[in-house]
Nucleic acid binder design. Structure first.
Lengths: 203, 203
DNA sequence: GCTTTTGCACCGACTGGTCAGTTCAAAACA
DNA sequence: TGTTTTGAACTGACCAGTCGGTGCAAAAGC
């Protein structure tokens, strides 16, 4: 039958590329207008694809969006994991690296950052939020726990809240920079955040 | 004309109360579902009012939302201003007070916090964002600038980015707490944020 | 006093338009 | 050859905004 057989796995495949284009178009439009205000027609048009293709590939508007969230969260988790595995002198230095990696990721996938921020706490996508918590926030929390273990943070420090705090801080700043100060180097923003969090200040 | 003509000004007036109820209902529903997905019918229903009343009072769905944003931003700005004017030993202590005030405000008006987070960067509401920046973020920025002047922060420190960072951090944490840890005292969350930002840590 | 008028605030059925999702035959691909 | 995409027509639900009408309390008239 004409049901989605496979072909979705191979990264370079025709179908995979169509999906990428749809993800990109959907992220842009939803970032601009929100999920409900974005029509499937407009997504298809921006992706340069027929409307039928959207339903052939995803089955529904919701499934497309759900796939988009999963896709983005997975890539973000990969980026943070990679940063966390790099060489670093101390847990706190790893925290720096994480923040920079998150900034760079959202610099590249700006529309996704806005989608994530806007939809993150919507009860409709609780599954995706759960994945965000277990695969992205967990990276931050682990590093903070390491810092506690290394004596760089007080024992008993609430690493869960702190992880959310740092993630939200970077997310907000990344979006603000893209919207209002696109020319400011990411490194400068990162330096400010590091100073703010680490108090590495020389008056 | 023969009669009060407005009635919108007097806080206890019938019309003012209707508007308050509509703001509240709209904030709750939009926080849950987003602006576009929220119908005027549902807002009216939750407010215990007929649909026509919404249009009588605000003219359009957009105008209602715009009014809601302004209303909330104004109250938030007032809350932060009050906190900033309170007695404090140093600019950094004022920063603490600001974060606590913001946490408390969003604790009380949780739905508004989510609306703000989700819609803040939507180009459609640029005016409201501008008001947020000039009346809310400016309070943070001023305090940070004071800290620079007092030698508590390095000269040249990017107070604009830092203000956004702190605001976004508190906003994110406030929403997460309400959604996932409603029993945790606001003061505990505040303490964690203060430690994170101030490095007041005793290993 | 007490009756009538005025107009604010509200009501809710109705309308005109929009959009998600379906269907399918034909074409393009690989 | 089987898979994927196309494009266009169709439907059924849904929704913002409209509009004629109601209730009511204060002011004006008597």
């Amino acid at each position: 039958m004409s049901r989605p057989g496979n072909g979705a796995k191979e990264p370079g495949g025709r179908r995979a590329e169509t999906r990428q284009r749809l993800y990109r178009a959907a992220a842009e439009l939803i970032a601009e207008q929100g999920f409900a205000a974005t029509t499937v027609d407009s997504i298809a048009e921006r992706a340069g694809v027929a409307k039928g293709t959207v339903f052939y590939n995803f089955g529904s508007k919701e499934a497309l969006f759900s796939g988009l969230l999963d896709h983005g969260i997975e890539r973000l988790a990969d980026a943070l994991d990679a940063a966390a595995r790099g060489p670093a002198e101390s847990p706190v230095a790893v925290l720096d690296a994480l923040m920079l990696a998150q900034l760079r990721f959202f610099d590249e996938y700006g529309p996704f950052a806005r989608v994530l921020l806007a939809e993150m706490w919507r009860t409709a996508w609780q599954d995706a939020v759960l994945r965000l918590r277990t695969s992205v926030l967990a990276v931050y929390e682990r590093v903070l726990a390491d810092a506690v273990a290394a004596g760089e943070l007080r024992p008993g420090f609430d690493t869960g809240t702190a992880a959310t705090a740092v993630f939200g801080m970077v997310l907000t700043v990344a979006i603000e920079r893209r919207a209002l100060r696109p020319d400011q180097p990411v490194e400068d923003v990162h330096a400010t955040l590091v100073e703010l969090v680490h108090r590495r200040i020389s008056p």
